[in-house]
C-alpha cells in the first residue's frame, strides 16, 4: 500500500497552483488535507502524475467576514470549525456538523474544500453547506466563477469542477436571529460514513426554510423551499407534517431504489425536522443525533 511515483508541488499562490494543475500532460491532482486522496493513492486507486498541495497558499486559509456572509478559505479544516477558530454564522450548525465528521485525526487535517471537491456522497459538508445555501468560489487560469454548493456535485465522486479549477473559498450566508436547524447523521458507529444524513434549516429573518438529504449514493437532495414537503411553513411538530409521498417523489427523481437507503433518508429527515422544531434559536448542541 504505497503510492505509485508522483511529482509533488506545494505552490504558495493560487495562480501558481492553477498553472500547475492546468498542465494537463502531468496528470495533476489537487491535494488539501489528503484524507481521501492519500488513502486512494496508497491503494493505487488514484495515480496522479503530479500532486499539487494547496495547503501553503495563505489565501486558502483566510476567513473574511462580510455583512451578509462569511467567506471561509477552502483549506480551513473541520477542526478549525469544530473548535470555533472560525466564527460561526449558522446558529451553531456548522460546528455541530464539523464535530461529527469521521475522527479527530481526520478532522485535524481534512478541509472544507477538499471534502467538497472529493464529492463522496456520504460525506457531510456537501449536504450541510447546501442546506445553509453556501456558495463555492472557484478559481482557474481563466478567472473565477461561483457555483452554489448544491450545484457542485453531479454524481458520486463527480463535480462540475474543471480539471484546473480550484475551490478557493466557501461563502456561507449569515443566518438571522431566530434561525433554527436540525441535523441527523445515522451511521453504524461513531466516526463512520453516514447511511442516513439530513438537515432542516429555517431562518425566519431571511425568510428561508430549507432541507437537504445526503448519503444517497448520489448528489444530495437540496430543497430550497421545504414548505411543500412539510405541508406548510416552518413551525412546531414539523416531523409529524412530513409529506412522505412528496419525499418519495424526490427520492424517485434521484433513482434511489434501495429501500433501506430510502427508509434512512426518511428517518433522518423526520428527526432533523423534529429537532429544528424543538430547538431554540440559540441552542447548539446536546441532542442525540
Amino acid at each position: 500500500m504505497k503510492p505509485a511515483v508522483f511529482d509533488y508541488a506545494r505552490p504558495g499562490t493560487l495562480v501558481e497552483a492553477a498553472r500547475l494543475l492546468a498542465d494537463t500532460g502531468a496528470g495533476a491532482k489537487a491535494m488539501a488535507g489528503s484524507q481521501s486522496l492519500g488513502p486512494m493513492m496508497n491503494l493505487r486507486l488514484a495515480r496522479p502524475g503530479r500532486v499539487v498541495d494547496l495547503t501553503a497558499i495563505p489565501a486558502l486559509r483566510a476567513v473574511t467576514r462580510r455583512a451578509d456572509a462569511l467567506v471561509i478559505g477552502a483549506c480551513v479544516t473541520h477542526a478549525d470549525i469544530e473548535d470555533g477558530r472560525v466564527e460561526d454564522v449558522t446558529a451553531g450548525l456548522l460546528p455541530h456538523v464539523a464535530g461529527r465528521i469521521a475522527y479527530r485525526a481526520v478532522r485535524n487535517r481534512g478541509t472544507l474544500g477538499g471534502s467538497l471537491a472529493h464529492a463522496d456522497p456520504a460525506a457531510d459538508w456537501l449536504t450541510a453547506l447546501s442546506l445553509v445555501g453556501a456558495v463555492a468560489e472557484l478559481r482557474s487560469p481563466r478567472g473565477g466563477r461561483e457555483v452554489a454548493v448544491s450545484e457542485l456535485m453531479v454524481a458520486s465522486f463527480t463535480t462540475v469542477l474543471e480539471p484546473d479549477e480550484i475551490i478557493a473559498a466557501i461563502r456561507v450566508p449569515v443566518a438571522g436571529a431566530g434561525a433554527r436547524w436540525g441535523w441527523t447523521k445515522l451511521s453504524s458507529k461513531v466516526g463512520e460514513f453516514a447511511h442516513g444524513l439530513a438537515g432542516v434549516f429555517a431562518d425566519p429573518g431571511r425568510g428561508t426554510f430549507r432541507a437537504a438529504i445526503g448519503a444517497l449514493d448520489t448528489a444530495p437532495i437540496v430543497i430550497d423551499d421545504a414548505a411543500p414537503l412539510f405541508g406548510g411553513p416552518f413551525g412546531e411538530r414539523l416531523d409529524q407534517r412530513l409529506d412522505e409521498a412528496a419525499l418519495d417523489r424526490r427520492l424517485d427523481e434521484r433513482d434511489v431504489v434501495d429501500d433501506y437507503v430510502r427508509a434512512m433518508a426518511r428517518v433522518a429527515l423526520a428527526r432533523a425536522a423534529a429537532q429544528a422544531s424543538a430547538r431554540q434559536a440559540s441552542a447548539g448542541e446536546g441532542e442525540r443525533a
Binding site: 488513502p39 491503494l43 453504524s188 458507529k189 461513531v190 466516526g191 463512520e192 460514513f193
Partner: peptide
C-alpha cells in the same frame, strides 16, 4: 471489505 472503512471494528464509543 477492502479497507477499514468497509470492515467495521467496534471502537471506544461502541
Amino acid at each position: 471489505a477492502t479497507t477499514l472503512a468497509d470492515y467495521l471494528l467496534p471502537g471506544s464509543a461502541e
